[in-house]
């Protein structure tokens, strides 16, 4: 049990959240439950609807249907009050290029009532950002750090990160993510971290939500997810048909040897395999990336059945 699971309050709660663009259902009946104080990894393939979801959470987009509550605020009607306690770092940080880092902080200080100039100065030093350099002259990674500093300097209760590591090289990305983890762990802030880079999410997230083609197909604590999803390698008899089981997410065949990803693998599944004449059964854990691919990757053997949320 993680610390998040003990909290009863949700920082973000959506019910039947939908957004259509013409005939395209970008977000389809999403019921998010983000516990307060946790890091929620919101992952999905490109175009799955992650950014659309976050823009609705920020009040930038009007939902087609459904309800949204962010820290108890309605983003469409109470956006100013909500933004006092919610910070947002978009996937493409579009600050004003002509401003210096120092001016950008001054600008933020005058726009945010909860701004902490000492914290902002601390973060700038920590991220080693040059105060007199213009934003347009900063590297992509430094711009991301500046955006993070702006987002954190107002002591937010919730930070929405919309794929902030996109386009960064591996070193910068690692540094960026570790910064988030370090600072937010200190502050106990809720983080809604959207990304399609699974490693980043796995490194920091407590909870995982997997969005696929607009639908939320997984929503549960990361440890619970990893504990339940298993990879099984087994030898099947000659001319055996594809193994059928409702818990199978993915099945690859190499001669008689097969690799199966189970949503849950327990004694029931194991006895079923023995009954089918299967031998040499090896069970191992999956990484988040394996789980993600099993859920949203090209299906082999068995289609995914239904959403898995807790």
């Amino acid at each position: 049990m993680t610390g998040c699971e003990a909290m009863s309050e949700f920082a973000i709660q959506t019910t039947g959240l939908c957004k259509r663009f013409g005939r395209l259902r970008a977000v389809d009946e999403v019921d998010l439950r983000v516990p307060a104080g946790c890091v929620y990894g919101y992952i999905g393939r490109n175009g799955a609807g992650k950014t659309t979801t976050i823009q609705m959470l920020m009040g930038f987009l009007q939902p087609t249907s459904g309800s949204v509550s962010v820290l108890g605020f309605d983003p469409m009607r109470q956006d100013v009050a909500m933004k006092r306690v919610v910070s947002y770092v978009p996937e493409r940080v579009e600050m004003y290029d002509w401003m210096k880092v120092r001016e950008t902080l001054w600008f933020g200080q005058h726009l945010h009532p909860r701004w902490d100039p000492d914290l902002a100065a601390h973060l700038i030093r920590r991220f080693e950002l040059p105060p007199e350099r213009r934003v347009g002259q900063l590297s992509r990674g430094m711009q991301g750090k500046l955006a993070l500093a702006l987002a954190l300097s107002s002591h937010p209760q919730l930070v929405l990160l919309d794929d902030p590591t996109q386009g960064l090289d591996a070193v910068v990305r690692r540094e960026f993510v570790e910064s988030i983890v370090g600072i937010l762990q200190e502050a106990g802030t809720t983080v809604f971290f959207s990304s399609h880079i699974i490693d980043d999410v796995e490194r920091v997230a407590d909870w995982i939500g997997i969005l696929h083609e607009g639908k939320l197909i997984v929503q549960e604590p990361l440890e619970q997810l990893k504990a339940s999803v298993k990879r099984v390698l087994a030898t099947f008899p000659d001319s055996a048909p594809a193994h059928a089981d409702g818990a199978i997410l993915r099945q690859d065949t190499d001669g008689r040897r097969r690799e199966i990803i189970y949503r849950t693998f327990g004694p029931e599944q194991e006895s079923g395999l023995h009954a089918a004449g299967v031998t040499d059964i090896e069970v191992s854990d999956c990484s988040l990336e394996d789980i993600f691919i099993a859920y949203v990757g090209p299906k082999r053997g068995v289609p995914v059945e239904g959403a898995r949320t807790s």
Partner: peptide, 15 residues
């Protein structure tokens, strides 16, 4: 201001 810049501006708590 580009849409991304407007989003940035409107992410601040100001009406």
């Amino acid at each position: 201001e580009r849409p991304e810049q407007l989003r940035y501006l409107n992410s601040w708590p100001i009406s």
